[in-house]
Every structure is written in structure tokens, then in C-alpha cells.
Nucleic acid binder design. Structure first.
Lengths: 121, 121
DNA sequence: CGTTGATACAACCGTATGGTTGTATCAATG
DNA sequence: CATTGATACAACCATACGGTTGTATCAACG
């Protein structure tokens, strides 16, 4: 009945930082090494490298060695996993709304036909 | 050009904790006060209350005073906002794949009919 | 109006996080 | 093989975080 498997903590907290989200975005479209990535931000190279490490530990990006560089690519599956969790929430919501509509329908029925022994809830 | 408006940091880091995600899940379907919520977890009431406060600051849940209790409800819009960001990433991905297919088509075209100046799509 | 139930808030503790600088690794290149 | 370009790693600092216990607020109820 657990809705949240392991790994979610890391994925969401990886996405909880503005710089890291921007890295994720960039690494979808472009293929850059860590140094090139770092050039886009006002912080030190080491800081960016640590951000990349966090994303890597969370499985959100992977690095592929090409020559001297490590090309950073974001992992589509990891993003999808996060999205699916939010989809589950949406599903719960729909279920709740359906339940409420059902109840309203029942109540309306009880008003219409007052003899029904619907006393549940 | 910024893909990430303010607030995302808080929403994602709110979702980055297992207990908080469970609170979010519960508060979609049920209508419980903070004390009732706390009864589901092995940590102290104060700890749960702090989690709820974090979720509230992030806009992920809201509290409605009913009698002495504060009913916790999760805010659908906030969850949707996060989901939309992940959707944007998916969009970037499709765009990238489209671009790649385009390139492949162009290249293939160049091979098949080397004289055609078909560079549109 | 004093008690109780439900919630909030403050102080404190250990650990994690985001940033820095400096040093080490390691493959390409001259 | 020494140099350089690209990356990794370690040490350090300040602040934030998740947890605790204890105290304060505040509406309901007798």
C-alpha cells in the first residue's frame, strides 16, 4: 500500500534546486561536458560539479566519457518516474471526486425516494 | 527563457521527504487534523506538525479551521504545477527526438536522391 | 471561568547541503 | 614523457533540515 518506492527522496530533492533543474533542462537538448555546463552559471566549477554529482546519484543524469570530457545527459526514465508519482496523486483525486459525485447521487436518490434505507456513512 | 518560475524549489523539496509525500497522499483522500495525521507515523507530533508547516509554506497543502482542529487538505494546483514542469521536460525531449529524426531523414534523403534540395520538413 | 483537546512555537542537537579553495587524477597532445 | 585540458575529490564554512522536548496559545465544553 506504500505509494512511494525508494529513490523518490533523491529524485525530488535533486529537482529541488534551481541550478540543478537548469542543468537537467540543458542536458536534455544539448550534449555538454561539466566544464561547458559550468560556464552557464555564476558559481564555481566545483559547485557545478557537485550539483552534477547529486543529479547522478539520484539517477537523473548520466555521464558518458568522450575523449577528455564527460558528456552529461539527463535520464528520461528518472524524470518519468517522478512524473508518474504526481500522476498517481491526480488519480487519487479523480477517485475522490468520483466518490463524492457518487455520494451526491445517492443522497439525491434518498431525497427523491425517501423510503430507501440508505443510512450509510 | 527561464523554464523555472519561483516556488519550484519549495514544492520539490517539500515532496522530497517520504513522510511528507505520505501526508500529501493522505490529505487528498481523507480530511484529518494534524493530530490524526500524526497518529499514522512513528515520529513525534511536533515533527509531523513541522512537516505540515513545510508543506503549507510550499503551498502544497492548506489548513482549514473546523472547531478546534485544523483540517489538512492538499492543494491540487500545486501538485499540477510540479507535474507541468516535468511535462515541459518531456516536451523538450520530444523536440529533441523530432530534431534527430529530421536530421536522419535529411541525411537519408541526401543518400537516396543526392540531387534533391529537400531541406524542409 | 477553569480545564481540556488540538495546535503552534521555541530551543536545542546532529547531520546534510551549497558554497568556497586547493590538490589529485587522468587522458589527449606536442 | 612533460604539459595541458577536463574532471574529481577533500577540507572547510555557514546555513538549513529533521528530529527531539518543553512551553504557549486558543477554541470548546462543563
Amino acid at each position: 500500500m506504500q505509494i512511494a518506492p525508494p529513490g523518490f527522496d533523491r529524485v525530488f530533492s535533486a529537482l529541488a534546486d534551481h541550478t540543478r533543474r537548469d542543468i537537467v533542462r540543458r542536458a536534455i537538448s544539448a550534449e555538454e561536458g561539466v566544464l561547458e555546463l559550468a560556464s552557464h552559471y555564476p558559481i564555481s566549477f566545483a559547485a557545478v560539479q557537485k550539483h552534477v554529482a547529486v543529479l547522478e546519484r539520484a539517477g537523473v543524469i548520466t555521464k558518458q566519457r568522450i575523449g577528455r570530457r564527460r558528456i552529461v545527459r539527463t535520464n528520461r526514465e528518472a524524470v518519468l518516474v517522478a512524473r508518474r508519482l504526481l500522476d498517481q496523486y491526480e488519480g487519487l483525486w479523480r477517485a475522490r471526486i468520483d466518490r463524492m459525485n457518487e455520494l451526491i447521487a445517492e443522497t439525491a436518490g434518498a431525497i427523491d425516494t425517501a423510503e430507501t434505507k440508505e443510512s450509510k456513512r
